[in-house]
Amino acid sequence: MQEKIPIAEFRNVSVWFDQGNSRIEVLKEINLKIYEGEFLAIVGFTGSGKTTLVSLLTGLLKPSKGEVLYRGKIVEGPDLERGVIFQNYSLLPWLNVYENVALAVNVVYPDWDRKRRDAQIRKFVDMVNLTPALLKKPNELSGGMRQRVAVARVLATDPELLLMDEPLGALDALTRGNLQNEILKIWGANKRTALLITNDVDEGIFMADRIIPLNPGPNATLGPEYKVSVGRPRIKASLNSDPNFRAVRNNILSYLADLGEAAKQSKSNGLKLPDLKPLTPGLRSFPFRRKAI
């Protein structure tokens, strides 16, 4: 599957955020090549810097050190050839489902006529099973439905490099399975390149050619890569009996378990974390309310 020229590349990329006189170091010395036509998955714990990694590729964020390249050129900003499904959906609340998808389709296919664009929009809304909610605003939809709109919005624009930041996290198992297949179908049919961020190892193995764990931050680095040499099309039901699948799965899970163990170790050594007492909910009421995320 891999050709020699990478479509996108990270060279010694570090990212930190300066906040007053403290510095949050998120990514450290990341080196990564994404090859044309491949499906790459990155798995990692929450807060390890996965979204930051995606922002670098979309061009919404510049590396603090090192460089990010797309087709050999340094990424200066966003471009339509790199499509992204944001982790927080990022739908425009004053537009309905149709209009949200249309905004992207109209931008990406300016020379198509109205009818063709309309058909494209409807096709992808239907693909994510949202035709009954076509004219609903995001606030009238559940979290899973919003996520599906975000998926439809990107798939309808058919980008060269498809960036997906935990795109299916809020979905039930059945819908999730369907959408995984749809994404694979579009990726395969058009010979696109895909980067999937996920915290579900099974999803990563089912979809990707390669899986790379992102070690927990601060200063997160990439772990070793795991090749998934299971033929396509893959069928979920029979995957469990595939010896390759089981081997990869065990390797990744034990790697992640070791990471978790290491994190626990450093915690019990008292090296990194201050001595925090857990809050007992219900015992005390606080005069402020946290905003729900």
Partner: peptide, 12 residues
């Protein structure tokens, strides 16, 4: 910021 990001990635 999320809405502005949408505008940015669509290069409006």
């Amino acid at each position: 910021e999320d809405y502005l990001n949408v505008a940015k990635v669509l290069k409006l």
